[in-house]
């Protein structure tokens, strides 16, 4: 562990003399750079997806969790009496607040997409709607249903839970998919950097042999390779992150009306999250190269 920390510190500090002992290897350098850039680009989108799904879940949860609707159906002559009874029940139910019967205009606006703007509500047996919110402590929906059943038989309570549950499950699923994609992206980056490091170590067997001959420790040799691949991964990831951020920023913003895909993007401080991508890519490359070099150097005589 101490060696690990020391090597990480050496990478941050840098050692130009040590860096020069490993020859620049063109193809693995370019591959590492390209892979890190591509993975960082994808990571930015996966991150945007995760955060957007999280926002959506929070919004749905917030909007649907506290609200509920009571639908009152009754013959035309009894509607006002039933409505008043329902209001009385709600106002006397602990945990219920902001009880608000929808006005005719509000109901008309609600039905307008289906029936047009001139719906004669007075002559149609349209149920009346009452919206209300629950307080922090919440209310007992089963108890409320029983009371309504006894006092307002034509009332149906819709507490939105049956809508909210699948929506939240879908949003959570999307969020998990986003984080899983991120984990896979960094796993793939680690695997690719590991392959590139192995190829580089194999190509530099002669260099390793000379370094050992002149007294270089395995840590010294490993650090030279680890530093090179880590810095390449960070540079590539920084490039990919910048391009990814630009792409996300250029996506059309549909604001609050957007769904998870059209609302893909970052809001506020979430724009800082992608800045972690190059650091994470560097950490992954550091670990992958360190494991590869330790393994290869351990196998060499």
């Amino acid at each position: 562990m101490r060696r690990f920390v020391r090597q990480a510190a050496e990478i941050l500090r840098g050692d130009p003399a040590a860096d020069r002992v490993v020859p620049p290897t063109g193809i693995t350098a370019r591959l590492t750079l390209f892979t890190a850039a591509a993975m960082a680009f994808l990571a930015v989108f996966a991150l945007a997806l995760s955060l957007a799904a999280g926002r959506l879940a929070d919004r749905w949860s917030e909007e649907l969790a506290r609200g509920a609707t009571l639908r009152v159906s009754a013959p035309a002559g009894e509607m006002e009496q039933q409505l008043a009874a329902a209001l009385r029940v709600l106002e006397t139910t602990p945990g219920v607040t902001e009880v608000q019967p929808l006005t005719d205009d509000e109901q008309r606006a609600l039905l307008e997409p289906w029936f047009g703007p001139d719906l004669p509500l007075e002559s149609l047996p349209v149920p009346r709607l009452i919206t209300f919110q629950e307080t922090g402590g919440g209310y007992d929906p089963d108890g409320l249903r029983l009371r309504l059943q006894a006092e307002v038989p034509g009332a149906v309570l819709d507490d939105h839970r049956r809508w909210r549950r699948p929506l939240l499950a879908a949003a959570s699923g999307l969020r998990v998919m986003g984080w899983s994609a991120l984990a896979l992206i960094f796993g793939a980056l680690g695997a690719m950097v590991s392959l590139a490091a192995n190829a580089s170590l194999a190509a530099n067997a002669q260099v390793i042999s000379v370094l050992r001959l002149v007294g270089a420790t395995d840590d010294y040799i490993a650090a030279a390779f680890v530093r090179r691949f880590t810095l390449r991964a960070v540079a590539g990831a920084a490039l990919g992150t910048a391009v990814g951020l630009a792409a996300v920023a250029l996506m059309p913003d549909t604001g609050d009306t957007g769904g998870v895909l059209t609302g893909l993007g970052f809001r506020g401080l979430h724009w800082l999250w992608p800045l972690l991508v190059p650091l994470l890519a560097g950490a992954v490359a550091f670990l992958a190269t360190r494991i590869a070099t330790t393994s290869v150097l351990g196998d060499l005589p």
Partner: peptide
Amino acid sequence: IRQRIGVVHQDCRFLDHLSVADNVALPLTV
């Protein structure tokens, strides 16, 4: 030990991307 016992191989292995001076100085560098 390799810092206390210098070795000269018959095939004189060097790092070909470094100059002669840098190769000679390699034990000091490491």
